[in-house]
């Protein structure tokens, strides 16, 4: 905190596809650093004082909702919980997440992508009886460890970092990507989901699915929630490779 009077230099990609003829340019903004400043605070400061048109997405500003992922000095990460003090040079370059439809500046349409992903992997419990459970009766029991394990896999916040960090996904549009594989692994672990391995194979048993993953591990290394992506993709791969 000693160098608190620093002037930070933000290099931000500016582009509004809604405006005809606009072209992407990098713009530089200077911001006086404050103690405990996050990129969330800094960007709002820029919007308030320098450029009201700057677009970005923050919701929870607490690292929980996953809406603020962007490329920060080359690394995909959640901007709201990135302290500016992390960058000793005081130069911070911000780009929108690649691999998603750009809305404008730093804002991308992860929602559309994630909905499509959820539909593709059928991200819900498949159990014909789920809608007929007698709500008055005791719930079905579940082993506490299994419940914990599922929760571990459900901590994904759909931020999209793993998509932007995956060169495979970037090269091959159709590839499901780590977030989708993770989601499927979550259901494959859940005893309430009655889908068989054959069913899962129908969803990810091809080169757009688990066999398309080239184990680049960008997903694993950039997931801000530290989900066990590598292990889970490997688990699915083993499972799917053994389907007869």
């Amino acid at each position: 905190m000693s160098e608190k009077e620093r002037i930070l230099k933000f290099h931000i990609l500016r582009y509004n596809p809604q405006i005809k003829g606009d072209t992407p340019t990098m713009k530089i903004y200077e911001v006086q650093e404050a103690p405990g400043m996050t990129i969330f605070i800094a960007l709002n400061d820029i919007r308030e004082k320098q450029d009201p048109s700057l677009q970005f997405d923050f919701i929870c500003r607490a690292g929980i909702c996953g809406s603020c992922a962007m490329i920060i000095n080359g690394q995909p990460d959640l901007a709201c919980r990135t302290l500016t003090s992390k960058f000793p040079e005081g130069e911070i370059k911000l780009l929108p997440l690649p691999g998603f439809e750009l809305i404008g500046d730093l804002s991308v349409n992860t929602g559309k992508f994630m909905r499509a992903m959820s539909e593709r992997v059928e991200s819900w419990i498949h159990d014909q009886d789920a809608d007929n459970v007698d709500l008055d009766r005791l719930e079905e029991r579940m082993d506490p460890d299994v419940a914990d394990e599922i929760y571990e896999l459900e901590r994904c916040v759909e931020c999209g970092c793993c998509i932007s960090a995956c060169a495979t996904k970037r090269m091959r549009e159709g590839f499901l990507g780590a977030v989708g594989l993770m989601r499927l692994a979550r259901y494959a672990t859940d005893p309430r989901d009655k889908r068989s391995n054959e069913d899962f194979y129908e969803i990810i048993g091809d080169d757009d699915g688990v066999f398309g993953c080239m184990t680049l591990l960008g997903c694993q290394d950039y997931c801000p929630k530290d989900l066990p992506l590598q292990i889970q993709i490997a688990y699915l791969r083993r499972k799917m490779a053994m389907v007869r």
Binding site: W124, I125, D127, D129, A130, D131, V133, L135, D136, R137, L138, E139, E140, R141, M142, D143, P144, A147, D148, I150, Y151, E154, D190, R192, D193
Partner: peptide
Amino acid sequence: APKAIRQLAAWGVPWSRVR
């Protein structure tokens, strides 16, 4: 409320369980 939570359990919430 108890029905709500039980329904959510059937819909996939991994509620922490008694050990």
